[in-house]
Amino acid sequence: MATRRDVGEELKYASELINAVIDGVTGPRIGLHICRGNWSTKEEVLLTGDYRALLPALTNMRVHQFVLEYATPRAGEIAVVGRELSGNVPGMTRPRELGLGVVNPRTTTVETVEDIMAKAETALEFYTPKQLFLNTDCGFGCFANRCVNVEEVAAAKIKNIAEAARRLREKYA
């Protein structure tokens, strides 16, 4: 359980840990997911802040994809990671990917296909369509006894993600 420590040390340690797990293992695409908490549907109790403070750790991680919350405005601007994390994975010729969060798993309103497309197009300023994955901001039930949504809404949300991707592929083919 957490107690306060030096933030710089913690970030360095976090990147050393993940690199030690993945270095030299080939085959799977390796992603790292970050969010600001998903234990409550009360947005105001979850964390707020963009990814800037995490960049010293993220830039050193040799993961292929960052799977990031971006549907919630609490996550800030896509440019923050777009500018720093859209080049190659360190030591590889493989471009880093972004798993862009385009729907909020905690809300009952389903994001429209147009909203999702617009969010994805913001990321295209920094990433190619091939580098860009579209996903939910987080899971729909990370804590079994504290699921943040119901199946019908979750299904409608992922359906709109798939439809947005289909239209984007047509547009950017």
Partner: peptide, 30 residues
Amino acid sequence: LREELIDLARAGCEFVQFDEPVLTEAVMSE
């Protein structure tokens, strides 16, 4: 975790995602 990743790679798993939500806690909760 490395043993698990290697097992998944050998089995042909296409995508492995590691969840690190407490990273935001480390920099934002203060």
